[in-house]
Write a protein that binds this DNA or RNA. Structure first.
Lengths: 337, 337
DNA sequence: CTGCACTATCGAAACGTTTCGATAGTTTCC
DNA sequence: GGAAACTATCGAAACGTTTCGATAGTGCAG
């Protein structure tokens, strides 16, 4: 494989000239630069990653710690992973994937061996051992999600609290007074995943503030469980005219199927809002009003923040992404009083 | 960060002694080894990845080319990615994730810069540009899936042909004569994904050989499409008593829902086999007889084969994983003649 | 025409490891 | 009792890059 010496020889210059020509860190005569570029092309030269790393320069690799927990919806998870990889590539960074048990131990390993320049953490729980580790390692890092203790961390996430408030207000403004919330799988709450309680609590608080009656129930990802969850809700709220779903696609689709079976029309009988959904709701029947969970926005911003830390011009802070409400016709004023 | 010199100093030996003690490539006095081990522990020493790579030794990194195509079921994809990462770690290898457009171009990039020791390819299509690239790059590589031209490649995959034969025989042996097959989304066949036609064609051939009447239909992942697919099948086979599903979880679950709605009992009215499924069928209602798609087996074997190529004792070849049939009570002798 | 600033280029050191060959010291064997 | 074989360790080279500090050469002001 061609190295910098080969390029230098082909272009008739020294290796330092080649290095400067390619990095642009010193001025090089246009004619020289051109000869070098031609040699590079000719030899298909690419700087040896190991040598570059060794010299103390950047490794151009980011560690992505992405454990897939039970109850986490795989497609949503996948979306985040892909978005991180895609965003990192924009800054010429590759991504080393650390999963499951290695999500924590592997982090230490790759950092200690100077294999990565920075870290991105996915799916943090409220008290996540990885946050302490990140603080200890002292490498630029960005957390997607908000753990309990954000001290010294750079975090970015959708503003789930605002999203919850938005969903409640939408329905209350339309005149709904009894509103149900279907949440994630029970396991997700028990494990201490960070965003589901953030959404739920803000939802309950805002509803209370506005004087609406509400009920919450988690829902597992299987039809019997979904049916039971829905029955829970209607049991608690016989006059329910509004429903917010903060759950993954199969669950939402099962709920719509159930409504269909029971002859409950959306939005005539029930106004439905899909909240913080990582998927598109316009192929559902009917399409649902949605507050999207913008995975690429979060991930792009996370990478930006990591790069800013490299540049040294970024202090640890928490950053929220403003939710948006997309109307697709699944809400209306309540017809049942 | 501590380097090998620090360890050598702490242990009172030279750096070469430290290196040999850690690699075990030359014999070292037990007492010396112990002092070195203590120093390593004390200083939390880990060899610098860049230096190790540079020296021409292994980078201990594998490139995983895993584009997520439209129509591919994300959870299945995720399962393979996780399995590859987990299997690689057993050999002390980390995984660099290349996705989407970078699945091909990134492969060239990371190989040219000597960043990876080997390559694993996921979700290859029948004529995949990545296979040519892999041949060109000449690095140890393993393909999960079977492209049309396997010349010079190491490939591993479930034996989809055997699985199809197994499914057909099971139903024919029980006495079924009209058997339907629900396949993947149409897009998957059009794109040229490798395994769906392998399964379909073997299915049709074996059925013909055994004198059974069959019909095949692809099915998109939404309920209207699934319903239409099922109606297609019953239209073509009014006396259908056996059904094989080679599709992802939501589709299979929608089909069962549909059967339930229409009062078609499994297995009394219809024997159902779930073929090459990456998910567990025992939480479906009813649980389905299944020929599992063993992602970890394929991935573990793929990593083993890659390691064997490093060791130099592996010639390019295609390797199939034998399918197994798991009975869960969704098949019986046909009651309708 | 001397001195200064500036441009384009070069040489060499440094990064941290692995590994080859050398060198003491110890054991074995005839 | 001395050669031979073996053990434990060391020194130094090499991997390919980046970057600091020199060094010619050029243009311009005084």
């Amino acid at each position: 494989m061609a190295n910098i010496h080969d390029v230098a020889r082909a272009a008739g210059v020294s290796i330092s000239t080649v290095s400067y020509a390619l990095s642009g860190k010193r001025s090089i005569a246009a004619s020289t630069k051109q000869r070098i570029d031609e040699a590079v092309l000719e030899l298909d030269y690419r700087a040896n990653a190991g040598a570059r790393m060794l010299k103390g320069a950047r490794t151009q690799i980011l560690a992505l710690s992405a454990p897939l927990h039970a109850g986490t919806h795989a497609p949503a998870h996948m979306t985040f992973v892909l978005s991180v990889v895609t965003a990192a590539r924009k800054y010429d960074y590759d991504v080393l994937l650390l999963t499951q048990d290695e999500a924590t131990s592997g982090l230490r390993r790759v950092v200690r061996s100077s294999l990565v320049d920075g870290i991105v953490l996915l799916d943090v729980s409220t008290a996540d051992p990885r946050t302490d580790l990140v603080r200890e390692l002292g490498l630029p890092a960005t957390v997607i999600g908000i753990p309990n203790d954000t001290d010294g961390l750079t975090c970015v996430d959708l503003d789930f609290e605002r999203a919850a408030v938005m969903a409640v207000r939408r329905l209350v403004d339309l005149g709904h007074r009894e509103i149900g919330l279907i949440g994630q799988a029970p396991a997700v709450y028990e494990r201490g995943s960070n965003f589901p309680p953030r959404f739920r609590d803000a939802f309950l608080a805002e509803a209370a503030r506005l004087g609406a009656t509400v009920a919450f129930t988690p829902a597992p990802e299987e039809s019997a469980g979904v049916r039971a969850a829905f029955d829970d809700l209607t049991g608690a709220l016989p006059g329910m005219t509004g429903l917010v779903m903060h759950s993954n696609e199969p669950v939402q689709s099962m709920v719509l199927e159930l409504l269909n079976q029971r002859g409950i029309n959306v939005p005539t009988d029930l106004s439905v809002v899909s909240a913080c959904s990582s998927f598109s709701t316009d192929h559902l029947t009917p399409p649902l009003d949605v507050i999207p969970l913008p995975a690429d926005q979060s991930c792009t911003r996370a990478i930006e923040l990591t790069m800013a830390q490299f540049a040294g011009d970024a202090l640890p802070h928490v950053e929220f992404i403003e939710p948006t409400y997309v109307e697709l016709g699944s809400t209306s004023t309540p017809t049942r009083p």
